[in-house]
């Protein structure tokens, strides 16, 4: 069985990899390209731990084939911080104790960033529904929702 050659962009950098046709984008990111920030919690699109954006849309990378990434632009959690400076969401998650074990955190950060790009001032309910596909078993979500709100306020230039 022949592997497929894929050229794609991850966090702005052009990369290439070879993968079997059935390999998921998640496995390609983790095992071929070393972006292990995206996690496999279920492999069926039910937990959101593998969230990345593909051409600007939030997706579960476990439900995308690596081959589909040809010519695409992908953003992962590794692309959130710029240099040494954390994205306001990342800083807010640390400051507001929005993670316990941290396994769901990369997916939630990527998802929350996608939300704030569409809606810079979401209500609690909008955040909760947007993040409904990101399971967190540790926090009960409370501090996650608050951290997203605080980061959103900061990104709007308001002091929370």
């Amino acid at each position: 069985m022949k592997k497929i050659h894929v050229t794609t962009k991850v966090n702005g950098d052009e990369v290439e990899f070879l993968c079997p046709p059935e390999e998921t984008l998640l496995d390609a990111l983790r095992d071929r390209l070393g972006f292990s920030g995206a996690k496999e919690g279920c492999g069926t699109g039910d937990c959101g731990a593998c969230s990345v954006t593909l051409n600007g849309r939030l997706v579960c990378s476990c439900l995308v084939l690596g081959a589909e990434a040809e010519g695409a632009e992908i953003s992962t959690v590794e692309g959130l911080a710029h240099g040494g400076e954390l994205h306001p969401l990342q800083q807010s998650f640390i400051d507001n104790a929005a993670l316990q074990c941290g396994i769901c955190t990369p997916g939630i950060l990527v998802a929350a960033k996608a939300l704030l790009e569409r809606n810079p001032d979401p209500s609690d309910s909008e955040i909760r529904y947007w993040l409904a596909g990101n399971l967190c078993r540790c926090t009960g979500y409370d501090k996650i929702i608050k951290a997203v709100k605080i980061a959103a306020a900061e990104m709007r230039g308001e002091t929370a």
Binding site: G45, S51, L58, V59, C60, W130, A132, G133, N134
Partner: peptide, 9 residues
């Protein structure tokens, strides 16, 4: 249908 992530696809 599905989550926000699934909605993207």
């Amino acid at each position: 249908i599905g989550s926000t992530q699934v909605q993207g696809r």
